[in-house]
Amino acid sequence: MDFLELNAVTKDFPSRSGPPARVMDGVSLAVRQGEFMAVLGPSGCGKSTLLQMAAGLLPVSAGEVRIAGRRISAPPPEAVYVFQQYTRSLLPWRNVRDNVGFAVEHRLGRRRARDVAEVQLGQVGLAGFGDHFPWQLSGGMQQRVAIARALAAEPAMLLMDEPFSAVDALTRLDLQALILDIWTRRQLTVLLVTHDVEEAITLADRIAVLTQRPASVAQLLEVGIARPRDPVTTRELPRFLQLRHQLLNTLLARHEA
């Protein structure tokens, strides 16, 4: 069953002079329940725009977004967006516990939100860090806080916008393993936007490749590598290398064009 459907989604942004600029042209994409899908594309192609529309954060200009069969026009309770810039999405005046409680405090109240936060912090390996402030933590730990916050809302789906692009390479592998673990344990549906080909292959069941602006889906690939996957050994498989070769060629060629 498809959990997230984008049907012929088009997006125009108003431009200062002349007609509106079309950044996305008739994108159709369906993410199955429990599936991990990655969206790859050259930078500036509108990947984040796509994800924001899927999250109900940005209205579509034409077409429709459906989540769990329902057409959405505002952020739905089933899906939570994880932002690329954890420094901007966490509240600097709140400690880590209250930043995670952010996800549920408006429904449960501040006090119960803190209990929920403690549990979630344990799930991302940050037990005992509740009293710290975001700026006292490393980038990788701050992104763990952001992930704990998203999980605290108990969503069925995560929409992740290049969540690991702002951390160093080793931390990135660490966080990828964490996300795979969480996805498996919670049977989540994930749509991950990235420009990192290896990340997409390591994590995803299927990979959608976008074209340059106005973006449309150029390719939809089945990864077909058995799970559980490992951030180290999976990268040495022939299938991994073959996909990497193919995807990089596609992306680079389109970039040069």
């Binding site: 999250a55 952020p75 899906a79 967006y81 932002f83 810039q85 952010f102 408006h106």
Partner: peptide
């Protein structure tokens, strides 16, 4: 106020008053 922060509130279902 940073748009990203406001979007974080929206994606978690915060109402306008909260």
């Amino acid at each position: 106020v940073d748009r990203v922060m406001l979007d974080a509130a929206r994606t978690h279902g915060w109402g306008p008053a909260h």
